[in-house]
Amino acid sequence: MQLQDWIGRTETIEDVATATPYAALAATLDWPAPLAGQRPASGTPLPYLWHWLYFLPMYAQSEIGADGHAKRGSFLPPVPLPRRMWAGSDFTFHTPLLIGDSLRRTSTIADVKEKTGRTGKLIFVKVRHEIHRNAEQSPALTEHHNIVYRDMPNPEDITPAPLVAPAGSAWERHIVPDDVLLFRYSALTFNGHRIHYDRKYVTETEGYPGLVVHGPLIATLLMDLLRSNLPQAVVTHFEFKAVRPTFDIHAFSVHGQPSPDGKTVHLWGRDHEGFLTMDATATIA
């Protein structure tokens, strides 16, 4: 079968927005007491992107591949390239998800594309997720998740020049991505990808200099920065693109800059060298 034959495949998963994952992520993001670790009451809105705490990938241990992800070829196409990264996502928030909601997520393979870049062959897979709450017909949240697969590094590859991050920002937060932070986020999202916790694997097999900080974790930190500075803001749309990997061997920072008209917020991640690692925009109602 061709990889494009997977376009249109769907799967549906049901879950309940329970309180304990909310409390655990609040503690992991270092929310101040008493919010950190406190289980929220039923009806409490989920912060933006915290739906990633649910619909966890519960594959049997025998179905796990060498990289810690599920073996390919069931829902996701059997891409032959070994490296897999979260390239970015975009979201439309229709109505809030609440603690206690019964949730249903329908996922569809929206597109599969093959490209050749400066570092070799690339395969992009786009997955559309629609999340419904309490049997409502219209989705509460629509997400497009972009996955990129690539080959192992080659010494002859031409490495793209890094982009310099904006110099100033209205808001910023500095993060020390130690092993415990990465482990806790992997555990909360039941993410078995070994690049986030297995230092021997990530350095010797995939050739990275250290553990890779999860793209969704950085995106969550960007939205949490917005929440802490504009707690009443209603976000209708959010999109982010991973620009450069972030590793646990150095601290990094997240930044935000509202537009003059207050309709959007530019958010970005910056590494210790001042290079752009993630670029994002939130649209405010």
Rank of each mutant, 00 (worst) to 15 (best):
I249G: 08
D178P: 00
A161Q: 14
G207A: 10
T189P: 04
P57D: 06
D101E: 11
P258Y: 04
P40Q: 03
G37N: 05
A280T: 03
H272V: 06
S138H: 15
A17Y: 06
Y201Q: 03
M152P: 11
D90E: 11
R9M: 12
V176R: 07
Y22I: 10
V180H: 02
V79K: 00
W31L: 13
A27T: 06
S169E: 10
Q137C: 05
K71R: 13
E130T: 08
L81F: 05
R270K: 14
T203S: 11
D5N: 12
T281S: 00
W86C: 02
M278V: 14
G210A: 14
L221F: 11
A19I: 15
T142G: 08
A26S: 15
K121M: 04
T159Y: 15
Y54M: 12
S253C: 00
R227V: 03
P258M: 04
S138L: 15
Y54N: 04
G262Y: 09
R84F: 14
G269Q: 01
P258T: 01
I64D: 03
A41M: 09
T92F: 02
T264E: 15
L122W: 10
M278W: 00
P21E: 00
T92W: 03
P139Q: 13
D67G: 07
T277F: 06
T205D: 12
A219W: 06
T281C: 13
E14I: 11
T92K: 03
A167R: 07
F93Y: 15
E172D: 14
F91T: 02
T119F: 09
G207I: 12
V112L: 12
G192W: 07
V16S: 11
A60R: 08
L276I: 09
E239I: 11
L163Q: 12
Y54W: 14
T264P: 05
N134V: 12
G100N: 03
Y59S: 05
H250I: 08
I64A: 08
T10D: 14
R104S: 12
K113M: 11
A24R: 03
W50H: 01
L29P: 02
G207W: 06
S186Y: 01
Y149E: 05
M278E: 03
E136A: 15
A140T: 03
A233D: 01
I284E: 05
Q257A: 10
A60H: 07
R227P: 02
V79Q: 08
Q61Y: 10
Q61K: 14
